[in-house]
Simulated assay, not measured.
Amino acid sequence: MTINMRLVSVARNGNQFVATLGSDFAPEYREERRVDQVVAEHGTLPIDDLYREVEPLSRNRGASIMTGWSWRCDLSGPRQGRPV
């Protein structure tokens, strides 16, 4: 499974299940997998109590700033077998 895949349906087939998977990026995509178990996870709420407590004490109020990061990172490396 990848983060862009979703469980579309589950059907029993003998003592197994047939899980039909779909893609967020290609609505027409379907893939079936025969499995013994199906575990579905629908996300969770973050436990962010500590973050919310210290956020007002930070200089930038918790903002993430990535100015200039993308031009310093050569993303062609992994495609050519080199690290980023």
Rank of each mutant, 00 (worst) to 15 (best):
V84S: 08
E41A: 13
L75V: 11
Y51H: 11
W69Y: 12
E55P: 00
V18R: 12
V35D: 09
P78I: 00
T2W: 02
R52T: 06
V10D: 09
A40D: 04
V35Q: 07
L57I: 04
G68T: 07
L75C: 03
P27R: 07
I3D: 15
R82Q: 13
D49L: 13
T67Y: 05
L45I: 09
C73T: 13
E28C: 02
A40L: 12
R12H: 03
R30T: 09
R52I: 00
S23Q: 07
G43R: 06
S76E: 13
Y51P: 00
A19D: 01
V54M: 11
E53G: 01
L75Q: 08
Q16F: 01
A19W: 04
G43M: 05
V54Q: 06
V35W: 06
L7A: 04
V35G: 08
N13S: 13
V38S: 06
S23K: 05
V39H: 13
G14C: 03
C73W: 06
F25R: 11
I47R: 10
R34E: 11
T2A: 08
E28I: 09
N60A: 10
W69L: 15
Q80R: 15
L45Q: 11
G62H: 03
S58D: 02
A11D: 09
E53V: 00
T2V: 02
N4W: 08
N4E: 10
R6V: 06
A19Y: 04
L57R: 14
E32F: 02
L21D: 01
W71S: 10
P83N: 09
E32D: 15
V8Y: 01
G68H: 04
V8T: 01
A63L: 09
D24P: 00
Q37W: 10
A11K: 15
T20V: 12
T2Q: 13
I65A: 12
Y29I: 01
S58Y: 01
D24K: 15
A26W: 04
P46F: 06
D49H: 08
V35S: 06
R59S: 12
R72C: 02
R34I: 12
R61H: 14
S58Q: 12
L21N: 02
S70F: 04
R6Y: 00
N15D: 15
I65H: 15
L7W: 01
R52D: 14
S76N: 10
A11P: 00
R30M: 11
A63H: 08
T67K: 10
V39R: 13
D74W: 03
D24H: 08
R6W: 00
D49M: 07
E31F: 06
R12S: 07
E31T: 03
V84M: 07
Q37I: 14
A63N: 10
M66T: 12
R59W: 05
G77L: 02
N15R: 08
R72Q: 12
M5R: 12
Q80S: 11
S58L: 13
E55D: 05
R12D: 05
Q80Y: 03
Q37K: 12
G77D: 04
Q16P: 00
